[in-house]
Simulated assay, not measured.
Amino acid sequence: MLYPAPMSEGISAGYLRSLEAIRGIGALAIVLYHLDDRLGLPFYFDNFYIGVDLFFVLSGFIIFHVYGGRIEDRAGYARFLWLRVARIYPLHFVTLVAFVAFQALTIEIGGSLAASIEPLFAHNDIWSFLANLAVIHALNLLDGPSFNVPSWSISTELYTYVVFGALFWVGLIRPDRPFAVPILIAIGGFALMAARTPSFNAMHDLGFIRNMVGFALGIAARGLHGLLPRPTTRTLTVLQIAAIAMLLVVLAVPGRSAPYLNYTVPLACAVLILACSHDRGGFCPILLLAPLQWLGRISYALYLTHYMLVLIVSALYVAAVQHGVITGKAWQPWVLIPVIIAITLPVAHATHVWVELPARTFLRQWGRLLPSAASPRT
């Protein structure tokens, strides 16, 4: 979850609530992206992968907001990493084991239903399982995405914490130095990506660089927030509209028609997050609505549990069409959007309450054995 900054920093207790909702919207976009990947929805869903870049930028903004200037020694760095592991690893482990069981059951059942899913298991072997277990599966060590595919970003996120936590520790990035190093990292990352691929949508191969770019821009956005005077609501609204317009352009243009266009996505996400971070402006009243706040709270569970459900629902749909169980023009793939939402959201909520939160609390208690260091909850 996202937590407000201490009041001593001059930020209201309501700070970050809009960002919580944005994270939920990003997770829902990824659900629809994977449904599109299986069934072929209207073309603009092809680019809903930008929800991941929204996560990366938001993560940099929040982590710098909470930890920037507070990791001052080895104990602080160790505790920071432990708290991040406690935040992301338990649910990754549970969904990995669940996917192994799902794969075994699918192969055992066989038939036409399994035939449409089994090709997705091509990279799932003992080595990729161990890589997933060690959370190194998205560090360009495997030939393709494996097991619970969305977890590639969890792998890159963990090692992004390692890098940036170290930069906080040695003082290269501090509240009074929020720009130089992050901007250099972002420029270098953009250059490395552009030299390898015209698309910014990298995963198991260049995903770590993609994550570093977004995280760095999130830090820069948080630094800019601290330097700017209190903006007017009108200014925030203009920035929100501009950022959303930039993202809509990316969604509206097929990637093959405009190579490198999606390189603008992390920049647009940084502008959007900066513009919404005051909980004011044209779109914030919507973001502050209770359903979107709830969506933000369950977003991590939604992100890691949806993929298996999408595979099952899409395979059932394909089988039903092939066997004539459902016919007619009304049964287009897009009708599954409300179905998959109705299934994934309750599962995510239950997972968040019964798995994610208890596991995180348990690991945090073990973290008390580490040397104490000032590190607020995130």
Rank of each mutant, 00 (worst) to 15 (best):
S257N: 15
L369I: 01
F102M: 10
Y307W: 13
D36M: 14
L113K: 04
W354K: 08
F147S: 13
I50G: 09
A131F: 06
I185L: 15
L228N: 09
A5W: 04
P231K: 10
L227D: 01
M193I: 15
V57P: 03
S375T: 08
G69F: 11
W127F: 05
L369K: 07
N148F: 06
S146C: 13
A348I: 08
L81F: 13
C276A: 15
A180D: 13
R210N: 10
G207C: 14
N47V: 01
H306C: 03
I136Y: 08
S18N: 10
T344D: 12
I341T: 13
Y49F: 10
M212E: 13
V213Y: 02
L96A: 02
L370R: 07
L32T: 01
Y260G: 10
N201D: 02
P346I: 05
F56M: 12
A301F: 08
F147M: 12
L83S: 09
T232S: 15
L247K: 04
T235K: 04
A191H: 07
W82P: 06
R87A: 07
A131R: 06
F190V: 13
L217D: 01
V265C: 02
P266D: 03
D46M: 06
Q293N: 07
G68N: 00
W152E: 06
Y260D: 03
L345F: 11
L28F: 14
Y159D: 03
I63K: 02
L272R: 07
A21L: 05
R177Q: 06
G110V: 11
C269Y: 04
A290Q: 14
P175K: 04
A252W: 12
R230D: 09
A195I: 10
L141C: 03
A315G: 11
T378I: 15
A122I: 15
K329W: 11
P90K: 09
S314I: 07
I117H: 00
A319F: 14
R364G: 05
V238A: 02
L239P: 01
L41H: 14
Q332K: 09
R84K: 10
A319C: 11
I107E: 13
Q293P: 01
V321Y: 07
L224I: 12
Y260Q: 12
P182C: 01
P259Q: 09
R74V: 15
I337Y: 00
R230N: 01
A104Q: 12
L217W: 00
V325S: 11
I273F: 01
T327D: 07
M203E: 10
G110C: 11
V321R: 13
R87H: 12
L224C: 09
V170Y: 07
C269W: 05
Y15M: 03
F200W: 08
R222V: 13
L363T: 08
V52H: 09
A202F: 00
E20H: 03
G60C: 07
A101S: 12
R222E: 14
G40T: 14
I219A: 05
D143V: 14
I312W: 12
W294M: 12
T106W: 06
A342I: 11
Y317E: 05
R280H: 08
A359K: 12
S116C: 08
L139S: 01
S277E: 03
L369Q: 03
F45D: 02
F99C: 07
V57S: 02
A78R: 15
P266T: 08
N140F: 04
I117W: 00
P175F: 02
L83A: 08
